[in-house]
Amino acid sequence: MAPFTTSVAALALAFAGLTTLALAMARHYGAIWRRSPTAAEAALLRALGALLLLEALLACTLGWGVVVGLVAWFCLLSVAGLGLVLLLPYAPQRVLLLAQAGAPLALLLLLAGGR
């Protein structure tokens, strides 16, 4: 699959995954929902976040193979994380929207490209 498509998809998935992991923390959860997450909610968010990061890894290996894909994944996580950290204090709601819209679109892109 074209590395460009996969890198866009993997970036969106990494961003969504890291956002979900951030939301499992009281500080960032509170910035959006004005309360602390319950233990169950936090656990669920963490599991979902980890799953999304794994999907990002999958996208990278589809684009570049396992070896280069793994390097790409680490770099993408860093860059997505920085984007998140810079956006989160200014527009938490929009970060949530971006993550919610980005992840399904990325998966669709991967499915369309994988055929």
Partner: peptide
């Protein structure tokens, strides 16, 4: 390796 996407990732990570 990895073409332009990886170069960009390295460029950004290096600037960071």
């Amino acid at each position: 390796f990895g073409g332009y996407p990886l170069k960009w990732l390295y460029f950004v990570s290096g600037l960071v």
